[in-house]
Design a protein around this nucleic acid. Structure first.
Lengths: 220, 220
DNA sequence: ATCCGCTATAGGAAAAATTCTTTTTTTATA
DNA sequence: TATAAAAAAAGAATTTTTCCTATAGCGGAT
């Protein structure tokens, strides 16, 4: 029999860690060798224990998941990290994969998926929960090639006028108000809106607001 | 030795349910007699099994946690429900308690707290996670002082369902996604959306996002 | 100088979302 | 019990968005 897959588990919720162990307890090919409840500790543990797979939550206090992935992959680009997050929005998948993760599953996932994902990644593959891929913006394969989907850079790819409109939309103005403000036809504004949302791959102005705030381009 | 405390566990994440069982497995005074992954099933199970305590997540597809609490407490005002949620904002605690919950703990809570809460509630008491109480009265008064529109109180004027929809809109979901999430007709969601925007006197979801963030109900 | 591509601006038609009104059922309360 | 409020949603009217197309202007390459 082969070596068991050594897993380190990183999640700030004790329940989730316990649940993970429990769900994996029936699977003899996998062994949880350590746990951490935050990113900083995870980075250290990774170096110390050299796990085959690190399963990691995105939202944690401190440096958080994304930054942890970045730091770990920086030292070891072959690091096998599986994100295990509550978020089922594609943006998160994208960000995580760009940061260097090899897989992404949500906490809604069925236990079998969890095991499958760990195994797939352990043997060097990628794994994204099937249900997530379906609602990816037609870029299910492109994420790997471009490797460049930071909002920062997309925002920079907006033209000057698009950016103007972006800001006002994020602020909460309607197309008509924006048209008045910028002295444009409301059709034009509406068209820019569509364009902007496509570029940022979102579907509501609320998301634009979050992005704007996240980028520090708007203070809330 | 006394009867063991019969607990029903409601959470849409399999990992969390597994973790809960695991963390309680050492405690012989407590016994998990059933599980459910959504509110509707929880209501039914409550009637069928008559648990001593029902531990319940707030965010679930379908009728969701708040509505479940309301329905159960309606039939049995002495129902002992302990909310077990990710949210650590006071608004949630308030809403849950108003709906009829007897206790509130977060998923960050230490296992001991979890056990303590169940026991306290089983014997007829209330239990709110200590760390949450600290920032309760401070916030509510802080918001009243701001000369700006008192969103806090308007938010409180939203019905339970409206609040659910408000959160998802503010998060950036489209009406269709929300309809799926909450198992409602998209028409219904659209209607709620209009209602909500009227009550809050705004005209875009971006503004809802700002309000939600401003109130600390959403972290961005 | 000419051509190419990109941005800025919009119009029209079709598709989608919102608003307004109304209805039904359930729950809550005076 | 009567009455008020909340939850859910359909239909019609309206508004917005989307998609496709088109024009004009500008800066750079040939």
């Amino acid at each position: 029999m082969k070596e068991r897959i050594k897993v380190i588990l990183v999640d700030d919720h004790a329940v989730v860690r316990a649940g993970f162990r429990m769900l994996l307890s029936t699977e003899e090919t996998i062994e949880v060798i350590a746990e951490a409840e935050r990113g900083e500790a995870a980075c250290q543990l990774y170096l110390d224990k050299q796990p085959d797979v690190m399963v990691l939550d995105l939202s944690m206090p401190g440096i958080g998941g994304l930054e942890s992935i970045r730091r770990i992959c920086n030292r070891d680009s072959k690091a096998k990290i599986l994100v295990f997050s509550v978020h089922d929005e594609w943006v998160y998948v994208e960000r995580a994969m760009n940061a260097g993760a090899k897989g992404y599953i949500t906490k809604h996932a069925h236990p079998d998926i969890l095991i499958a994902a760990i195994q797939k990644i352990a043997e060097g593959g990628d794994y994204i929960e099937p249900s997530l891929i379906s609602d990816s913006p037609a870029l299910s394969s492109a994420y790997r090639e471009t490797g460049e989907t930071d909002y920062k850079s997309i925002i920079e790819s907006l033209s000057a006028r698009e950016f103007d409109v972006f800001l006002l939309l994020a602020k909460g103005l309607t197309s008509h108000k924006i048209a008045d403000e910028l002295c444009l036809g409301y059709k034009t504004v509406a068209n820019y809106g569509t364009q902007i949302r496509n570029k940022l791959k979102v579907s509501s102005t609320a998301e634009l607001a979050h992005i704007a705030i996240g980028l520090g381009v708007m203070k809330n």
